[in-house]
Amino acid sequence: MRVNFTVNGRPQEADDVWEGESLLYVLRERLGLPGSKNACEQGECGSCTVRLDGVPVCSCLVAAGQVEGRDVVTVEGLADFAKQRSEGGCATGACGTTLQDAQQWQAKGTDSQTGEGTELSPVQQAFIDAGAVQCGFCTPGLLVASDELLERNPNPSDADIREALSGNLCRCTGYEKIMDAVRLAAARQSEGV
């Protein structure tokens, strides 16, 4: 079957989709967007988290056919998504202070093997700065979930962060640096940096 939907603001068309394919498979194998990760394919790890019409979901549990005509944001589009939000405000008004310049928090050139000059969202930068990335396989899902948390709740308590990220498994970090990263992103956001 054919599926038409929007990914990171761009209309996409996937052809010859097998009916049992998940949104995750279509993103990764048909649209060249492997950022969303395939760690469990049973909704138990959160590595494939994307926004579906704004709502964080496990893309492995969305049938490809179900996204017809809908809007998907993946980790690849997160920086743009955050930038647009900061420029345009958001419907809920819960976005906190305007994020003027995400570029300020780019990875330091001296440390960046590649990807220099890439524009990052505040939460992406905070994950790098806080040491929240080790193997990085859980990172895309955690970023999408964390970004959505901070959109909803700009000043989350530790318990709020833990609850919001309780659907995202990480095997490397013991989560402490992930907590640090979300706190850091929230603090920078509230300082309007």
Binding site: S22, E41, Q42, L61, A63
Partner: peptide
């Protein structure tokens, strides 16, 4: 029937089920 997909898709991904038809309720 498939709505949230949180049961059905697990069974499909893990090859436990191959229904003839999926009926999307979304």
């Amino acid at each position: 029937p498939i709505a949230g997909g949180t049961d059905v898709m697990v069974e499909i991904n893990f090859d436990h089920r191959r229904p003839e038809y999926l009926l999307d309720l979304n």
